[in-house]
Amino acid sequence: MARFVGTYTPKLDDKGRLTLPAKFRDSLAGGVMVTRSQDRSLSVYRVDEFDVIADKAVQASSNDPEARAFVRYYFAGADEGRLDAQGRVNLSAEHREYASLTKECVVIGMYDHLEIWDAQKWRDYQAAHEEAFSNAGSAALDAIL
């Protein structure tokens, strides 16, 4: 499994294509799923990883109306694609609008997937959460582990 980590700053071209980091292209060669994510960003998963998430989500949502609503929204906003020869993924107009993407974008690694952010929204998000990150310290890490 690829470990998607780091921060990258590709530019969105006029056709809605975004170049993904070269170091991840082999891992994404089998296809990607792009979907809406929290905080007005987009998530990019390998197809096989997305299928694992989908199976779990469908099972969990069968008896929970809130989970069903989330799953509907999540899957309705998903789009399957392939990287082109230059490592670009085509982002639909709906996805670009949802995430308010401009030419300046940020791609961040989230270990099992990538997130795509508008560069200014990412800077705003970081500024809003820096203090909480700094103050959380080892207690937050202990809670995760």
Rank of each mutant, 00 (worst) to 15 (best):
Ala2Lys: 05
Phe4Ala: 02
Gly6Arg: 00
Thr7Pro: 04
Pro10Thr: 11
Lys11Thr: 09
Lys11Phe: 04
Asp13Glu: 07
Asp13Asn: 09
Lys15Glu: 08
Leu18Gln: 10
Leu18Met: 03
Thr19Val: 09
Pro21Met: 05
Pro21Gly: 01
Lys23Leu: 04
Ala29Asp: 06
Val32Leu: 03
Thr35Cys: 04
Arg40Tyr: 10
Val47Phe: 00
Glu49Tyr: 08
Asp51Asn: 06
Ala54Val: 06
Asp55Ala: 09
Ala57Cys: 09
Ala57Val: 05
Ser61Cys: 07
Pro65Asn: 03
Glu66Cys: 10
Glu66Pro: 05
Ala69Met: 12
Arg72Ser: 00
Tyr74Val: 05
Tyr74Ala: 04
Phe75Asn: 06
Phe75Ile: 02
Phe75Thr: 06
Phe75Ser: 06
Gly77Gln: 09
Gly77Arg: 07
Asp79Leu: 00
Leu83Thr: 02
Asp84Gly: 08
Gln86Asp: 12
Gly87Ser: 00
Arg88Ala: 07
Ser92Lys: 06
Glu97Val: 04
Ala99Phe: 03
Leu101Trp: 10
Lys103Val: 10
Ile108Glu: 12
Met110Gly: 07
Trp117Glu: 13
Gln120Arg: 14
Gln120Trp: 07
Lys121His: 12
Trp122Val: 13
Tyr125Arg: 07
Tyr125Val: 01
Gln126Ser: 11
Gln126Val: 10
Ala127Gly: 14
Glu130Trp: 11
Glu130Val: 12
Glu131Arg: 15
Ala132Lys: 15
Ser134Cys: 14
Ala136Asn: 08
